[in-house]
Lab assay of single mutants.
Amino acid sequence: NLYFQGLKYMVPGARVTRGLDWKWRDQDGSPQGEGTVTGELHNGWIDVTWDAGGSNSYRMGAEGKFDLKLAP
């Protein structure tokens, strides 16, 4: 699974964008943008601060869902 392989790169400072299971509307800005991981992966959740200004926790394994992917 590509998403599980990418988890080791989901570290503080990593750049991310919305992924396969995104369901959080425009939390990442409008139009959709990139963000920066600000915390360690914990119980399948990870913290992100978006360039647009907001921050929140997103699923990276929790509930079998992956809200994020590494930015290109």
Rank of each mutant, 00 (worst) to 15 (best):
L7R: 08
P72D: 14
T17E: 11
D28V: 04
E40D: 10
K69N: 10
D47H: 15
E40H: 13
R25P: 09
G53H: 02
W50P: 00
Y58G: 01
F66M: 07
L70N: 04
G33F: 05
V11D: 03
K8E: 15
G54M: 11
G44S: 01
G39M: 05
P12T: 10
R18T: 04
K23I: 14
G35W: 02
L68E: 01
A62E: 03
P72Q: 13
M10C: 09
S55F: 11
P72M: 12
D67L: 01
G44D: 01
E63D: 11
K8C: 15
H42E: 10
V37Q: 02
D26H: 08
A52S: 12
W22G: 03
L70Y: 09
Y9M: 10
G35I: 02
Q27D: 09
L41R: 08
W24H: 06
W24V: 05
K69T: 10
L68A: 00
P31M: 08
W50R: 00
G54I: 13
P31V: 07
T49L: 14
P31E: 08
R59K: 01
G61Y: 03
I46H: 02
G6D: 15
S55T: 14
R15I: 03
D51K: 05
D26S: 08
A71C: 12
Q5R: 10
D67N: 01
G39S: 14
D51H: 03
D47N: 13
N56F: 13
S30M: 12
G61I: 02
Q27M: 06
G33Y: 05
Y58A: 02
V48Q: 00
G13L: 04
P12D: 08
Y3E: 15
M10W: 13
S57E: 08
T38L: 09
D51N: 05
Q27K: 05
V11M: 09
A52T: 10
A71M: 10
A14V: 11
Y58N: 01
D51L: 05
T49K: 12
S57I: 10
G33S: 12
P12V: 13
V16D: 02
G33P: 04
G44M: 03
M10R: 06
L7N: 08
P72R: 13
W50Q: 00
Y9I: 08
R18M: 08
F66P: 02
V11Q: 10
T36G: 01
E63P: 00
G6M: 15
R15W: 03
V37S: 01
E63A: 09
A52H: 14
L41F: 09
K69I: 10
E40R: 11
H42D: 09
G6L: 15
V37D: 01
E40T: 13
R15T: 02
G35P: 01
M60F: 09
V11T: 11
R18Y: 06
T38W: 05
G35M: 02
T17R: 13
Q32D: 11
S30F: 11
D26Q: 09
K65W: 03
K8L: 12
L20C: 15
G35K: 00
A14W: 04
L7Y: 08
R15Q: 02
S57W: 09
A62W: 13
A62Q: 02
S55A: 11
P72C: 15
Y3C: 15
D26N: 10
W22T: 03
S57K: 15
D26W: 05
S57H: 10
L20S: 12
G61H: 04
W24D: 08
Q32E: 10
